[in-house]
């Protein structure tokens, strides 16, 4: 226990030692050129960020829903969206993803997976409410019909042909398996 405390003391000391007063460094600032700023004119530089996260924050929007926040910041932003709070299996995955930083695949890839699961959850939720989603309508096939009919018809014909071929193949296999069993 004593050793641990000593370790922490040493680490703090190291950190303090790393803070160097620039004005005491030989040659500090002698070639500084404020005009050499590739962020101009996007950024009206005031160097406020040198003071860290120190501005007077706007009032906080009441956090009365679940808001996930990046672990690269200490808090929930003063305002946030309330569009779709995490829920279901996709929500569980999203919560886990937020244990990883934006710097990690562990953050983004599970979020993509959650999005795909969420799509299935959406269909289930529609059906549970007694609403059968019009998937072709949602995909805007009316626009295809109006402006790109030949392509749409080709897609439908190819899809139908492939579907029929797969169906026939499966049926034949099942039939031959049943025949094998019989003998």
């Amino acid at each position: 226990m004593k050793d641990e405390a000593k370790d922490i003391d040493n680490k703090v000391r190291d950190l303090e030692n790393s803070v160097i007063n620039p004005s005491q460094v030989k040659g500090w600032g002698i070639d500084a050129d404020p005009k050499n700023d590739p962020t101009y004119p996007m950024k009206k530089r005031n160097n406020g960020e040198h003071a860290g996260y120190s501005w007077e924050r706007p009032p906080q929007q009441p956090i009365d829903i679940e808001v996930l926040h990046s672990n690269e910041r200490p808090n929930v932003s003063a305002t946030f969206g309330t569009s779709v709070p995490p829920s279901g299996l996709s929500g569980v995955i999203r919560r886990e993803a937020f244990n990883f930083s934006e710097n990690s695949y562990g953050h983004w890839l599970p979020l993509m997976l959650a999005d795909r699961i969420n799509m299935v959850e959406g269909i289930v939720s529609d059906l549970a409410r007694g609403h059968v989603p019009n998937i072709f309508g949602e995909m805007g096939w009316k626009a295809d019909w109006k402006h790109d009919r030949a392509n749409l018809v080709t897609k439908v014909v190819i899809g139908a042909a492939l579907g029929t071929a797969v169906f026939a193949l499966l049926r034949n296999r099942r039939k031959s398996r049943r025949t094998e069993n019989y003998f």
């Binding site: 996930l68 926040h69 990046s70 910041r73 929930v76 932003s77 305002t79 946030f80 937020f98 934006e102």
Partner: peptide, 11 residues
Amino acid sequence: ESNSQATAVGG
């Protein structure tokens, strides 16, 4: 102060 969910992009 407009996006909690990612620091790389604002709201």
